[in-house]
Computed example of a mutant assay.
Amino acid sequence: MVVDKSKALEKSKGFANEFREFIMRGNVMDLAVGVIIGGAFQSIINSLVNDIIMPVISVLTGGIDFSNWFVSLDGSKYSNLAAAQEAGAATLNYGVFITAVINFLLMALVIFCIVKSLNKVSEKVKKEQEEEAPATKICPHCKSEINIEATKCPCCTSDL
């Protein structure tokens, strides 16, 4: 069986060109930048939740540590999760799950508040820009004030 090398080469160049066009699209680049910034933003949100909000919640709940809430599946009693894991016992770590859910809800709340405030600022800027846009213009021929969207002057009927 003879393989036409020129067709195979054309296909590979076509695939490479297609891939390059795909990568260079604005949407893909925007997505890449968003993922990178999201990763950096995640560390800020994690620090806010773990270093500021969770200690306050810990004080309010009397220092409850959910991470040591577990059920040992071998029936033995252990003082904490680390001791159970050190003994090699299978454990159902529902406290770790509760902590993860609380962290998720706190992160979602923080992100919601940030996005809400950014949207409010964006809305305010947009309103200011809309208010600054003129609603009328001056006819260059008769100098009368006319609607900004007019294409013909109602006073002198000249084309604008």
Rank of each mutant, 00 (worst) to 15 (best):
G39P: 06
T99S: 05
F15V: 15
F70N: 00
A8F: 10
V71F: 02
K7R: 07
K5V: 06
I64S: 13
V35I: 12
V2H: 15
I111L: 07
A108G: 14
V33H: 01
K11A: 13
C153A: 14
K120F: 05
L9S: 05
P134S: 11
M107V: 08
D4L: 03
I111N: 08
E131Q: 07
N103D: 15
V110D: 04
D159T: 13
D51C: 04
I102F: 06
E10M: 09
Y94D: 07
E145W: 01
N103R: 13
P154K: 08
G88L: 02
K77D: 09
L9E: 12
G39E: 12
F97G: 00
A90E: 04
E132C: 11
K77G: 12
S117I: 11
G14Q: 06
Q85T: 01
K7T: 04
F70I: 01
E21F: 00
V71Q: 03
N50I: 02
I111M: 04
E130M: 06
K7N: 05
S117L: 11
L73H: 02
N93T: 09
F104H: 08
K152R: 14
V71D: 00
L92R: 02
V96D: 09
C156E: 05
A100T: 11
I146K: 00
R25L: 02
D159S: 14
H141P: 00
K5G: 08
